[in-house]
Amino acid sequence: MDWVPIVFIIFKVLVFGTGMFLAIKWHYDQKKKGQPTEKREVLRVVGKVALVIVIFGILLAGLLFFTFALGRKLGLDLS
C-alpha cells in the first residue's frame, strides 16, 4: 500500500481538526465577552445541533443505501 495517501489524510485531519478547534474557541471567547447566557438559550442551541446531527445521519444513511442500490442495479460487484 502506498504511504502517500495515509500521510495526506492524517495531515488533512490534523489541519482541519486544529482549524475547527480554533474556530470554536474563538466563537466561545467572543460569546463570553458579551452578555451572560441563560440555560434556556443553551438548551435550545444544543437541541438544534442535535437535530441537525440526526438529520445529517439519516441523509448519510439514505445516500449510502442509494449508492449500494444503484451499484447493484448497474451490476457492480460490491462484495
Rank of each mutant, 00 (worst) to 15 (best):
V45C: 12
V13G: 01
V13H: 01
G19H: 02
M1Q: 10
F8E: 10
I6K: 05
I6T: 11
G34W: 01
V46I: 13
L43H: 07
K73A: 15
L63C: 10
A23Y: 14
L14W: 03
R72L: 10
G19L: 04
L59N: 04
L76W: 09
D2F: 11
Q35L: 05
V49Y: 13
K48F: 15
K25N: 05
L60E: 09
K12L: 12
P5N: 08
V13W: 02
G47F: 02
K31W: 04
L64V: 12
I53Q: 09
F65S: 02
R72Y: 07
G47P: 00
F66C: 03
M1Y: 04
L78E: 02
F56Q: 05
D2R: 11
A23E: 10
S79Q: 13
H27F: 15
I58Y: 08
H27M: 14
V42H: 07
P5M: 02
M20F: 13
E38M: 04
K31V: 05
I10H: 00
L70Y: 09
L22W: 12
L14C: 13
G19W: 08
V7I: 14
L59C: 11
L51R: 02
I53M: 09
L70S: 14
V4D: 08
F21C: 02
F21E: 01
F16Y: 14
M1T: 14
D77S: 13
A23R: 13
D2Y: 05
G71V: 02
M1N: 13
M20S: 14
Q30G: 07
K25H: 09
F65A: 05
L70A: 12
V46G: 01
G62Q: 01
V46K: 11
M1F: 11
Y28S: 08
G17K: 01
E41V: 12
E38G: 15
H27R: 15
L63W: 07
A69D: 03
V52I: 15
V49S: 09
R40V: 15
L59P: 01
I53Y: 12
L74V: 03
Q30C: 09
Q35W: 06
T18N: 12
L74M: 13
I24G: 04
F11N: 14
G47V: 01
G19C: 13
A61C: 04
L14Q: 07
D77N: 11
V13I: 13
G75L: 03
H27K: 15
R44Q: 15
F65Q: 04
W3C: 11
V13Q: 03
G71H: 02
F68R: 03
V46H: 07
G19S: 06
L76S: 07
M1S: 14
A50R: 12
F16A: 15
D29M: 10
Q30V: 01
K31C: 04
G62W: 03
G47D: 07
L74E: 07
K48L: 10
Q35M: 10
V45L: 08
L59E: 02
L76D: 07
I6N: 06
S79V: 06
